[in-house]
Each structure stands twice: as C-alpha cells, then as structure tokens.
C-alpha cells in the first residue's frame, strides 16, 4: 500500500507545481518564469507535502500513544498552542530579526501543549476529559492570539486571527521552507523509530513497560517529535486541522489497526490530503482563495462526527 500512496503523493506534488493563475510559467522562459516556479510554486507544493506528512504522522502518533482515536493536533489544542507561540514571535518582530525564532516558538508551544495534555492522560482520565482539555486549550490559545494581534502596531494584524486558526500556505517563500523543513524531518525521524513502543502501548502502560518499553522515555521522545513536527508546520502555515484525524483513520483498517504500522501510511495520506486540498482551494471559483485550514475543517469536522458516531463505545470509553 505504501508504494501506491507514495506514487499518489508524488503525482499530487507534480499537479501542485502545475496549478496557478500564471498557468504555464515555464513558457515565459526567463527568470520571471523561473521565479514563479521556484519561489512561489515549489515552496507551496513542498510545504503542502511536508506539513501534510507531519500532521498525518503526528495524528497517528498521538492516537497510538494516547490510545485514543480522536487525538489529533488540531482537535486537542496542540496546533493552536503552537500557533499562539508563533504569533508571539511573528508579530513582536522577533522572527524578523532572528528567523529561527518562528519555528522554535512554534515547537515550544506544541511541546508544552502535549506535555499539558499528558498530565490529563496520566491522571487516568478518558477520552472525554482529553477532548475537553483540548477545547479549553483551543479557546485559551485563540483568545491569547487575539490579544497579541490586537496589540500589534500593524493595522492589518488584528484581522489575521483566522489566518492563524485556519492556516494557509499561499505565498510562503523559500525562507519559510528552509526554516521549517529540518525540524519537521527531525521530528518525523524521531517518531518513526518508535513504532514498536507505540505498538506495545496498545496493551496499556503497564503491559508495555513489562515488555521492556521505557514508557517515560518513549513519551519524551514522542512529545519532542510531535512538538517538532506540529510546531514547525504550524509556525509557517497556521492551524491546519483534522488532517491528523482523517489520515490515520483512512489507513488503520488496512494495516490491521496496528498503531506502529499506521504511522508511515498516515504520513503519506496526510501529505496527499493537504496537497489535494491546496490544489482544490486554488481551483475553486470563490471570489477569494479559501484558506487551506478552512477547507480542511470543512471536510474534517464532519469526519470527526462520523468517527465519534461509528467508534464503538468500548474503544472510546477506555
């Protein structure tokens, strides 16, 4: 299956490079055509690929780790927290002075949110309290974002709340690609090596430890991995929700529900979903280009309802 998914992702990547209001920029044959491809379309398509992959993978990791099919960076507030931290770095001018401040802030925000959520999980509470915690974190982060934006001297800043809560990858240049890619790749490598530990956790924390998994260290590794991926992705794009929810669900049955084996296909499906969504928002005949995050919510929120309704109480109550 992974091979076919890879082909799909690559095909969508090529389509993404080919879609834009300038149609076929290579026909210009000069540095302007080159700039359209290299400075506008390559960053956009590549960010779509990487961010989608990072979100799909993060969803799979969080769901496996928390043993909860609804855990998703957007739903449980990890993305919003990363977004808030990135907003602080961006509008304060810190990111303009020190470029890496943007992804680093996002990563810190995401990691803090994951750690916060883990305290709720460790307190032995179930799905409902995890989701309520997510609701609370989302609300707090949105309010804080509004607060920071309202204090910005840029007259347009205050209208940008929606941009950070429903992200977009339009017109990010290569610099954004450069500051986010290493972190997303590092995060992915960290969590991809942890598949066996996540598998063991499907028997619960105690059994996993008896199988030789050092769950404390595993948790630290996954927190860092998810923090790196979601933090870097969100700091350049804003919150792109539900990708981490949908992607693992689409592949889980195909891999026999093994949480470790879900990770790679979920990453590929996440990349395909974001690339496809980003192509669609460019092609949709709306007066203004729809934000990518708005589009994923449009598709993803009903999916959440579907998952909640379909999920057997046995798998949700745990």
């Amino acid at each position: 299956m992974n091979r076919w998914l890879l082909v799909l992702v690559l095909a969508l990547y090529v389509v993404s490079l080919a879609v834009g209001p300038a149609l076929w920029p290579w026909r210009l044959g000069n540095e302007v055509g080159w700039a359209i491809v290299w400075e506008l379309r390559v960053p956009r398509a590549t960010l779509g690929l990487l961010i989608g992959g990072a979100l799909g993978l993060s969803g799979a990791v969080l769901q496996g780790w928390l043993r909860n099919p609804l855990a998703e960076p957007g739903v449980i507030g990890v993305s919003a927290c990363a977004s808030f931290a990135a907003v602080c770095a961006f509008y304060s001018g810190l990111a303009a002075a020190f470029t890496l401040a943007l992804p680093l802030a996002g990563i810190a925000g995401a990691a803090i949110a994951v750690a916060l959520l883990m305290t709720a999980v460790r307190a032995g509470t179930g799905t409902v309290s995890l989701l309520l915690m997510g609701v609370a974190i989302n609300a707090i982060a949105a309010a804080l974002i509004a607060l920071v934006l309202a204090s910005s001297p840029n007259p347009f800043a205050y209208q940008e709340i929606s941009l950070w809560l429903a992200g977009s990858i339009t017109d990010r240049d290569l610099r954004y690609l450069a500051i986010s890619t290493p972190f997303m790749v590092a995060g992915a490598l960290l969590v991809l090596g942890a598949g066996r530990g996540v598998d063991a956790l499907s028997l619960g924390d105690n059994a996993a430890r008896s199988l030789g998994v050092e769950t404390g260290r595993l948790g630290l590794r996954l927190t860092l991995g998810v923090g790196l991926m979601v933090g870097a992705a969100t700091s350049v794009a804003g919150v792109i929700g539900f990708v981490g929810l949908i992607a693992p669900h689409l592949v889980r049955a195909k891999v026999g529900y093994k949480p470790g084996a879900t990770m790679v296909p979920a990453m590929l499906v996440g990349a395909a979903l974001v690339l496809a969504a980003d192509i669609l928002v460019r092609l949709m005949p709306t007066a203004f280009e729809l934000q990518l995050g708005v589009f994923t919510s449009l598709v993803g929120a009903p999916f959440l309802v579907y998952v909640v309704r379909r999920a057997r109480s046995a798998w949700l109550a745990a």
Binding site: Y91, G93, S152, N154, F156, A157, Q159, E160
Partner: peptide
C-alpha cells in the same frame, strides 16, 4: 507596510 510584520503585508 511590513515594518511591523503581519501576514497581510509580508508579501
């Protein structure tokens, strides 16, 4: 326009 950064003006 982007003296104080915002997504709106960073282009």
């Amino acid at each position: 326009a982007n003296a104080h950064p915002a997504r709106a003006t960073e282009f």
